[in-house]
């Protein structure tokens, strides 16, 4: 099976601060990979570099066999195939839910209005948001906003989804509804690369877990093994702290 996404030697610095120090990672089609690690370990930056929102300093990104970091590749076209959902939702506050979702299909893919809206409504129905389609984002709860943000990314029919700590900005009681949407996507075979602080969720959903520290992947493997018997002492230390905090 070919890899949906290959990252090779990704390096990224912000000024003198090197955030990614050569990341190699391959995600197979239909695989769910979770990135775990402390804040500042480079998880979010890695996701933002993957869809070229953040330009990388060195390395290659290959999506479904096509190197998107090659010169002459139109980054806008690449991003249409990669869905990304951010921690802070970033819905467009001046547009209704429906318009938020149909904007990119209509403008970037030149889909006609009817097709785009029908597709958007069917997605909203699937995630129990159909009655919210004419609301503005500030009338929705955080959980609903984040689900709309996920639907907005799905409306582009991406071949891979990147989720950047999508539950971190939510009140605890709203986390479950967002996680269940992601579980649903995983069941349907969506390829996903997920940065998360929800260790229990990562253990349930991931095919593979990668532990990042200081811009490097220190350890990776199936969640059962990583969470029960980590080989790297630093992974073990990180997980011990998580357990002490009552988060696993």
């Amino acid at each position: 099976m070919s890899a949906a996404l290959v990252l090779e030697g990704i390096r990224k610095s912000f000024g003198p601060n090197e955030v990614l120090k050569g990341i190699d990672l391959s995600v197979a089609a239909h695989e769910v990979v979770c990135l775990i690690g402390a804040s500042g370990s480079g998880k979010s930056t890695l996701l933002r570099c993957t869809n070229l929102v953040e330009p990388i300093d060195a390395g290659r990104v290959v999506v479904e066999g096509e190197e998107i970091t090659a010169s002459g590749v139109n980054a806008d076209r690449v991003r249409r195939r990669i869905g990304i959902v951010y921690q802070s939702f970033n819905l467009f506050p001046h547009m209704t839910v429906l318009r938020n979702i149909t904007l990119a299909p209509r403008e970037a893919l030149k889909m006609d209005r009817k097709t785009a809206e029908d597709h958007a409504v069917s997605l909203l129905e699937r995630f129990g948001l159909a009655d919210r389609k004419d609301e503005y984002p500030d009338r929705l709860s955080g959980g609903q906003q984040q689900r709309v943000a996920i639907v907005r990314a799905l409306a582009m029919r991406p071949s891979i989804m990147l989720l950047d700590e999508v539950t971190s900005a939510l009140d605890p009681e709203l986390v479950a509804e967002v996680l269940s949407v992601i579980r649903e996507l995983a069941r349907e075979g969506m390829t996903m690369l997920i940065a998360t602080h929800e260790m229990g969720f990562a253990r349930d959903i991931a095919d593979r877990v990668c532990f990042l520290e200081e811009g490097r992947i220190l350890e990776q493997g199936p969640p059962e093994r990583i969470f029960s018997s980590p080989k790297n002492p630093r992974t073990a230390r990180f997980l011990r702290r998580i357990i002490e905090a009552g988060r696993l």
Binding site: D76, R79, N90, L91, F92, L103, A104, E107, A108, M156
Partner: peptide, 19 residues
């Protein structure tokens, strides 16, 4: 972040500005 969200969806710089 609004611009980043628009660009992440595949909108061009001009489309992000306009919409």
């Amino acid at each position: 972040s609004q611009n980043a969200a628009a660009r992440s969806l595949g909108l061009t710089r001009f489309q992000s500005l306009r919409f």
